[in-house]
Structures are given as structure tokens and as C-alpha cells.
């Protein structure tokens, strides 16, 4: 039995109007995100047997997002951020009309495709959760998406300046809570956020890179 089952039991027997978002019950749709004993988790993947039988289990909605009702939150902030990300812009096809990518080129970005958009990483990120910098910071989920586009071997768009200015990656201080709560085990900080920060360092903070660009007259990408 999982926490979501217990919520459904309460819903059926004690509080018919209790609002709770859910769908697959298999940890793949990302709908039943909530905070269980204060920790952002998927209710369908949290076993009751992991807790002391005498313990009171507390469930709360995600703190980062406005509450619609009970455990249901309004996560539309995320979709608004997503709309601002420049989409995939592939280079021209090969002469035979195909695109070609080697496995080693897609292995790295394949990890980011595992994201189920549960937004637990957005919930736990203190920049959004406590400091409320939704005005300036996109959040970990969108740095995964930006990394998957920026590292794509066929993509030609350049999003580095937007990652700095519009999506505010500098607000992230690498506390890795997003990685800790990710139910898909994506290494959000090590494989997406830090590599993007390093790309920013190449562009904006490294004087040697700046000098090399001036001498060679060309940018790294595109």
C-alpha cells in the first residue's frame, strides 16, 4: 500500500471532497507530487510500510505553487517558462535527406528525456520555494530541458545568453536538492546545471576564452 492508496481510502470513506491529482499510479505521469512528512515525493511511489505504523504521516501540497484545493496546486508557472525556451532548431539534413547522430552523442542528453515533469525539483528548489524568485529564475526542470537542447548534436540555436539573463541560472547555488528529490534519478545538478554554468563561464567570465574568441574571431557554437 502506498500513500496515494491511503489518500484514496480517506477520500472514499471520510472526505469525499478531498482534492488530489493522480493518474498512472506507477511513478511515470508525475501527477501525484506532494510533500510527505515534509519531503517532496510522488504519493504513488511512497510505501506506507516505510514508515512506523504508529507514526502520523503528514501530507501537504507542494509549497512552491499556489494551492487550488487541498493537495492540488497550480503548476502553470512551469508551462509559462517552457514557452519562453527557444525550440529545437536542427541543422540541415545530410545529402541523402537524413539526420545522423551517433549513440555516444545522444547518450548524454538521453538522461534528460527521463523527466516526467512531476515538478518536485521545482518544489524543493529554495530559489522558487522560499525566495520566490519566479520572476528571474526558471528552476531545475527547465535547466534540464535547456541542457538537452544546448547539448543536442543537431541543434543550432544559441541559448547561452538567455540561460544567463532570462532563466537566471546564476541564482542556483548548487545545493543539489533537486537531484535528491528527482524520482527518475536524473543528475540534474551535475549533468545539466553545472555544465550550463560552465558554458556561461566560457562565454562571460573566463578571460582566456574571451581572448581566444577575439583572436580567432569565432564563437564555439553555431
Amino acid at each position: 500500500m502506498v500513500v496515494l492508496d491511503a489518500i484514496h481510502r480517506i477520500q472514499a470513506l471520510h472526505a469525499n471532497d478531498l482534492a488530489c491529482r493522480w493518474n498512472c499510479k506507477a511513478g511515470k505521469c508525475g501527477s501525484c507530487s506532494m510533500e510527505i512528512n515534509g519531503r517532496p515525493k510522488l504519493a504513488c511511489m511512497t510505501r506506507l510500510s516505510d514508515y512506523d505504523p504508529e507514526e502520523t504521516i503528514t501530507v501537504q501540497p507542494m509549497k512552491t505553487f499556489p494551492i487550488i484545493k487541498d493537495l492540488v496546486t497550480d503548476v502553470s508557472f512551469n508551462y509559462e517558462v517552457n514557452k519562453r525556451i527557444p525550440p529545437f532548431k536542427p541543422k540541415p539534413r545530410d545529402a541523402d535527406g537524413n539526420y545522423r547522430m551517433m549513440q555516444k552523442d545522444v547518450d548524454r542528453i538521453q538522461e534528460f528525456r527521463k523527466c516526467i515533469e512531476c515538478f518536485l525539483c521545482q518544489d524543493v528548489c529554495h530559489v522558487l520555494r522560499d525566495h520566490r524568485r519566479q520572476d528571474a529564475f526558471a528552476g531545475p526542470r527547465w535547466f534540464i530541458r535547456l541542457a538537452s537542447l544546448e547539448m543536442h548534436p543537431l541543434d543550432t540555436a544559441d541559448r547561452v545568453s538567455q540561460i544567463k539573463e532570462d532563466f537566471g541560472i546564476g541564482f542556483c547555488n548548487i545545493t543539489k536538492c533537486c537531484t535528491e528529490v528527482c524520482p527518475e534519478g536524473i543528475h540534474i545538478t551535475d549533468n545539466a546545471i553545472i555544465p550550463l554554468k560552465e558554458r556561461l563561464a566560457d562565454r562571460y567570465y573566463d578571460p582566456v576564452m574571451w581572448l581566444m574568441r577575439k583572436i580567432t574571431g569565432k564563437d564555439r557554437k553555431k
Binding site: V124, C172, N173, A201
Partner: peptide, 29 residues
């Protein structure tokens, strides 16, 4: 900043992260 995950951080108004004073962290290389 914060002391733990889903634990309240020391308040900062406004929070700046590594955008101002901590920009030097970008020279880790």
C-alpha cells in the same frame, strides 16, 4: 542557503544567489 532540502533558508531580500558577490565562483577553472 538552505540548511537542508525543504528546510527554510536564512532570509535574503532579495535573494541573489551566485549572480553578484559570488560571481567569482565562476573562475573555479
Amino acid at each position: 542557503m538552505p540548511p537542508g532540502c525543504a528546510v527554510g533558508p536564512i532570509p535574503q531580500h532579495p535573494y541573489k544567489g551566485e549572480t553578484k558577490f559570488l560571481l567569482f565562483q565562476n573562475l573555479h577553472r
